[in-house]
Design a binder for these strands. Structure first.
Length: 209
DNA sequence: CATTTGATAACG
DNA sequence: GTTATCAAATGT
């Protein structure tokens, strides 16, 4: 395998999780299928979850359970969990060990293996194939068994692909976390402005300075 | 806007 | 061990 384009551990093991989330835009999420063929999508939407002090994070207040244990590991691992009784969410663990931050990949734009993606998603308009965290897991064949996998292995990884200019990046509030109180207002959702694969058009928070 | 079911937390 | 509450969403 040629792994040169894979992001290095240093990319994930940094303190500024929001920055990592922003930099993941334009990168390629690759999950080979059973036959070893590349199925991939460009990341167009992410959300940062900043650990202990973030009411919306599973690790808020230092909560540590069998489910979120992975978040306490070093950055560069896959954290997959099940929600709403039917959907998976794909996250990349960020930061050093005992620093339970993670970045939720909310949407990708199909790049390779589109036929496979269409097959998995059924008859679906193209812009609906991967425009949401649950959808992209189905499309890329991600399931519970990916939890705890390394992003430097052969099951799934993220590699360099496009550069997204700062002007193309939109910032806003995270989605589906109304219970998080003030933290629900934090500008920790990032997406590529105008990209049709972003899960939902939402209000942008004008970036300070 | 109703739906869905596994994971958690709070019990006993 | 049992029970109650809730969840990083989706499809209609």
């Amino acid at each position: 395998m040629h792994a040169e384009r894979k992001l290095s551990p240093e990319f994930y093991i940094r303190e500024d999780t929001a920055k990592i989330a922003r930099e993941l835009l334009g990168k390629l999420l690759v999950v080979p299928d059973e036959g070893g063929h590349r199925v991939s999508g460009m990341i167009v939407e992410t959300e940062a979850y900043l650990g202990i002090g973030d009411r919306a994070a599973h690790s808020y207040g230092g909560r540590r359970t069998g489910r979120n244990e992975i978040m306490y590991g070093a950055g560069g691992q896959v954290y997959v969990f099940f929600v709403y009784g039917m959907y998976y969410q794909f996250n990349a663990v960020a930061g050093p060990a005992e620093h339970p931050h993670a970045i939720l990949i909310r949407a990708v734009e199909p790049v390779e293996g589109i036929e496979m993606i269409r097959e998995r998603r059924g008859k679906m308009a193209d812009h609906n194939l991967t425009s949401g965290p649950g959808k992209l897991c189905i499309a890329l064949g991600i399931n519970r068994s990916f939890n705890g996998e390394s992003l430097f292995g052969e099951r799934s990884w993220i590699e360099n692909f496009r550069d997204i200019s700062k002007a193309q990046i939109a910032v806003g509030k995270r989605i589906g976390i109304d219970y998080a109180g003030e933290d629900a207002q934090k500008p920790w959702r990032f997406w590529v402005r105008g990209n049709p694969f972003v899960s939902k058009p939402r209000l942008e928070i004008s970036q300070q300075t």
